[in-house]
Design a protein around this nucleic acid. Structure first.
Lengths: 228, 228
DNA sequence: CCAAAAGTGTTCGTGTTACACCCATGT
DNA sequence: ACATGGGTGTAACACGAACACTTTTGG
């Protein structure tokens, strides 16, 4: 039945594999995700998360790296597998099984590449998303859930912050992702007692208020530690 | 290069999709996993987790159900996706991307089907596993990690216990999976305060010691709750 | 009557929460 | 001088951890 459709995948007897990436970044102190407005026939004007077919000679992780670089120009982006979406009819064009990844970027340097393949590539506030095609809405739900859970027991937040940051900025990231206010004193006490950040000798100035000490993460590696 | 090998998959230009299942059950108060001894050419005598190719017209979850029924004769088995393993050379016979699932069964009724396809199908103590082929050793690691984590914040344990059980049996499951002794009074206090089990009017007798009250889970559904 | 496992409370220490004021800078 | 966000301590409470004896059955 699927094979009757005239599409690029119709000749395949097996499901083929794609990767889709839910990319998160903080913009204006708010969590945003990167979406693409499609030009492809049958999907004109629809929004989707970036993704693409995995090549037979690359791993899913390599596919994610390649696609991220194509879309954002960034290398060395933190990415974590979320799960695989394989409903038989998730893609009308054929049987495509998508391995979904969540990726985090420091949004500042995330200069987006404009390509002719898409009508638009841009960041969307997570609280104000357009309708998404395929099952990408579901993927974003899963990604958000995972991200929120991991804030509580890993240092994953380091992947979405710039190298140096103030404790208030760190707290803002937690608050915007978790959608809840936290107590400043308790937050700082907790973060400092964990010993995952160290104060640098730099200060953030020019903010029409008292300068704030800049901090950096001690560990370059992502790992588990009880935070909240 | 891969396509040069004369195998059943060699003609495919794309990766194909399989599902592999890490099946857990409690046998003799100890965590066991189901393994298969293969007959397939090139893999003779090697142990692997049950798995198989996904059909183009079935979802990964349906493939898991089908394979579990083929291997164990059981239906309605709890299964959860662990992640997808897609290293380019994970299968020497061709490019196979495997979606790994963890499944839990009440081991009592898990009568294993003997088939001619395999040299053996049997339960192995998790602390004494043979060498595993493909990346199935890694899958079991991931499954164990997931299972242990979920014991602490979900009622997942209901899927590995029979309908009625004593609190000591419940504690034994936690202890064997987590490989640690727990305090009986604290454990019972915690479980009872969560309200996830209810006492039945049955007792377990004939055990050459004082009879124990049998309990059952209140919720049929799997859900999150802080347990430990 | 002895062995074996069931069942049951209290104390202590640690970690989480709630809460308010002074400080340094830019305008 | 005033507006803005930076930075700091303490007290109440909840939760988890440690710990020992009595009860009921089978043999």
């Amino acid at each position: 039945m699927i094979a009757q459709k005239k599409t690029q995948f119709a000749r395949i007897d097996y499901a083929i594999v794609a990767t889709d990436i839910i990319l998160f970044g903080i913009i204006d102190d708010t969590l945003h995700t990167l979406l693409i407005k499609m030009k492809k026939t049958g999907h004109e004007g629809k929004w989707a998360a970036p993704g693409g077919l995995m090549d037979v000679k690359e791993s899913p992780e390599d596919a994610v790296k390649r696609i991220l670089e194509e879309k954002t120009g960034l290398k060395d982006v933190f990415a974590e597998q979320l799960g695989t979406f394989g409903a038989v009819n998730r893609d009308n064009d054929g049987r495509v099984v998508a391995i979904a990844y969540m990726a985090l970027v420091h949004a500042d340097p995330a200069i987006l590449r404009t390509t002719e393949e898409y009508a638009a590539v841009c960041w969307h506030d997570i609280t104000d998303l357009p309708k998404l095609t395929y099952d990408h809405g579901e993927m974003i739900e899963v990604a958000l859930e995972r991200l929120r859970a991991k804030l509580a027991y890993t240092n994953i937040v380091r992947n979405i912050l710039p190298t140096n940051f103030t404790l208030t900025e760190l707290q803002n990231v937690y608050e915007t992702i978790l959608s809840k206010k936290m107590d400043k004193r308790n937050f700082r006490k907790k973060i400092l007692s964990l010993g995952i950040v160290k104060k640098t000798d730099k200060m953030k100035t020019g903010e029409k208020s008292r300068p704030a000490a800049l901090y950096a993460f001690k560990d370059k590696e992502y790992h588990a530690i009880d935070i909240l």
